[in-house]
Design a protein around this nucleic acid. Structure first.
Length: 108
DNA sequence: CGGCTGACTGCGA
DNA sequence: TTCGCAGCCAGCC
């Protein structure tokens, strides 16, 4: 681990893959775990590529407001929410109940 | 090789 | 939590 390869996406892959079922996290939290504290955007872009990769529960990643900002990239805007609800994640209207399901990824 | 865009965040009000 | 401003880095054209 801690391989500084250009495969930055690969790191996000590992972290997202480590997200427990029924839990959600933010881009910043992931970025922080990767050492990219100020570059949460990169996490989002990484996810954009990871969503193209099967086996990556990127639907467990939301923005700091708890909104499913990446749902549009799922092909089906509602798919992201459906997946979370299927895992037991509670929703507050259009947002995820961060207070209840927020999970902090740890540094590899 | 240069510039723009982008699944965002943090701070202050 | 919401609104506004500015920063950060990598991928893509």
């Amino acid at each position: 681990m801690a391989k500084l390869d250009t495969d930055f996406f690969h790191r996000v892959y590992g972290v997202v893959m480590s997200i427990p079922e029924g839990c959600v996290t933010t881009y910043g939290a992931i970025g922080q775990a990767l050492g990219l504290q100020r570059s949460a955007r990169m996490v989002g872009h990484a996810l954009a590529s990871l969503v193209d990769d099967p086996g990556v529960p990127c639907h467990r990643v939301v923005n700091h407001a708890g909104m499913l900002s990446g749902a549009v990239h799922f092909g089906t805007p509602t798919l992201m929410r459906e997946l979370l609800e299927a895992e037991g994640v509670r929703f507050k209207g259009e947002r995820v109940d961060m207070k209840r399901h927020f999970w902090q990824p740890e540094v590899e």
